[in-house]
Amino acid sequence: MSEEVVFKGSRSGLKLILTNTVDFPTIENLIRQKLDSSFNFFQEGTVIQLEAGWLNKAQKQSVRGIFSSYGLILQDGYEEKAEPLKVSLESVDRTQAHESEDKDRKLKTTVINQTIRNGQEVISDGSIIINGNVNPGASIIAGGNIEVRGACRGIVHAGAFGDVNATVTAEYLIPMQIRVADLVARAPDKRMSKADAPYPEKAYVSKGKIVLEAINR
């Protein structure tokens, strides 16, 4: 595969890295090829940061045009670097999320009043509260904390952008995996049931490990 056009996932979201080893029309073609071959992979509305300082304004505009024709949003990583980490992952849940108007990342909380089923995904750069269950095969990814007011059986990732102080709480905390920042804890190989978590629990990072603790509510 070509090395001139590379997509890279990072803490701040997806990055498009272009190197100036070939001419611009070739780059454009390569981008189209990549996007065609990864059709359905990128969700519409995904924000991608451009990392190619060598492109001139017109060229950047043209690249941006290609992305928007695929329903994707390209942000110039150089131009907007000064701003502190703008939303790189929109809350792209296919469920009806009721987002608070607050744009502040720290304060933003997404509340979802329904069960998240197998194959569904809720992503937010703030905190997420689920009033319902998180079923096996579902995943919840939050920049902040995750709270499940129900049984949590899917995959939960709190502090997805590196916040080790993020926590996961659930009425029944029996997930496949708990991830906090870059740490992962997985469920025991034995199949878990509600009886294995009879009280609400909270997961957080302590001494470089994810620990669970019973909480009172």
Partner: peptide
């Protein structure tokens, strides 16, 4: 059976969608 219930859950999500 675990697999059938898992797929049913997915299907319910798809139906809702």
């Amino acid at each position: 059976e675990v697999a059938a219930v898992r797929d049913a859950d997915k299907i319910i999500g798809e139906l809702n969608r």
